[in-house]
Design a protein around this nucleic acid. Structure first.
Lengths: 219, 219
DNA sequence: ACCACAAAGGGTATTATTGGGTTTTCAATC
DNA sequence: GATTGAAAACCCAATAATACCCTTTGTGGT
């Protein structure tokens, strides 16, 4: 089969070495071409605005300046025909749901085999999505284990909660966080208590670590 | 110049995709051959014990099970002829000094260009070390800025302090940490106060973030 | 033996964090 | 209009964490 349609791919990751190594790997796939690479979300947005229009963008979740979550949201709103695949270290339910909400079409854990990467790129172009059994399994479990839908909600974060978790990774006191969030100190503590319950932790350090582990805060 | 001596390289990183992409990249260098790859420090140690003896090991600092620091220490004590190059996200003075102490022969920030990787591998085999200007600059600055040697010490961690910083990333109280470390609660607070000063932070969350940022704790 | 110095431990006061029970507000729904 | 539920806010009490000043202990150097 000579000359199938060439798939154009863009890469976004803040580490040049890994980005270039990945680009080199992807270029070796016979049906893929790397259109551009970027160090953060802002660069992606600028490139796309400038007319570069890849079929697929493979994007790290943790990036400086503008992170993968925000960038994916922007792409969904402005260029929904570009397929975004998230590259993540951890594939927790929380990360999964947050990325699905902003329109990610696929997930790649950083510990997959290169062959799977090739298949994933093809799959997302042909069928519009790519979810591993592991991802599907997690989603299925979410619903299977919940007679009511509250268990599902347990794995979602409001924007407020996500913002609070980012503040938890700073040295601000809860009072200062309250000012920053426009809430009373006591309300902030309510948000905190709710998260203690849902995340199964009992201290602020626990919340901070949770945020780091799930890519909610840059560190 | 046909057929210079082939350099054997080993790779250790817990993310298969990045590890394999790097291996593929390194294999493309005409004078390098990838001997084996490993997902963590224990695998490296097992492989070397089993007779695999690469010229160079490129190793991530953050790995599960046995981390890059410990593995480098073991290699220095048991196979000092194997050159270890650390692959790090952050190149703080602290990380630098800790790795020098256990015998790392070179540092690679994850945002270097692939060409520099090739040069680094050759350099560490030929001259026994590879330090970028950035690394050398940091070390020079350490000494230049210090009339006495206390400023240098400020950038070093005792094993006790490193251990304490790891505990800071858990949900243990200081009392519990004290028991675990075999110190009185008050002594633990002294260790903490000392680190507050040196690291320029003022809360436990600040210490935890510091530990994460510098690869002292796995998360 | 003496000194210098750093680690370990101590006392006390203040602030931050955590836990539990309670109330208000407001929008959605019936 | 009444009811329900969730988010926001409040109070109080207890524990954990932070700040400051100080003493003991041990170690290495002279």
């Amino acid at each position: 089969m000579p000359d199938q349609k060439l798939i154009t791919v863009a890469l976004a990751d803040d580490h040049v070495l890994l980005r270039d190594a990945l680009a080199y790997l992807i270029s070796s796939f016979n049906n893929c071409q790397v259109l551009f690479t970027a160090a953060n979300g802002q660069e992606v947005i600028d490139r796309v605005k400038g007319g570069n229009h890849p079929d697929v963008i493979i994007m790290d979740l943790n990036m400086p300046e503008v992170d993968g979550h925000t960038t994916t949201q922007w792409l969904r709103d402005n260029h929904p025909d570009i397929h975004v695949m998230m590259l993540t270290m951890y594939d927790s339910e929380l990360t999964l749901i947050r990325m699905l909400q902003v329109g990610a079409k696929g997930f790649l854990k950083k510990d997959i085999h290169p062959d799977e990467l090739k298949f994933a790129i093809q799959s997302v172009v042909e069928s519009g999505y790519y979810y591993t059994n592991s991802v599907t399994g997690k989603l299925v479990n979410l619903f299977r284990n919940s007679p009511d839908e509250k268990i599902v909600m347990r794995n979602m974060l409001t924007d407020q909660e996500a913002q609070f978790l980012r503040f938890c990774c700073s040295e601000m006191t809860y009072k200062e966080i309250a000012v920053e969030m426009g809430l009373s100190p006591r309300s902030v503590e309510s948000v905190r208590d709710e998260l203690f319950l849902r995340m199964g932790v009992k201290s602020r350090v626990g919340l901070a670590m949770y945020a780091i582990r799930h890519g909610l805060a840059t560190f």
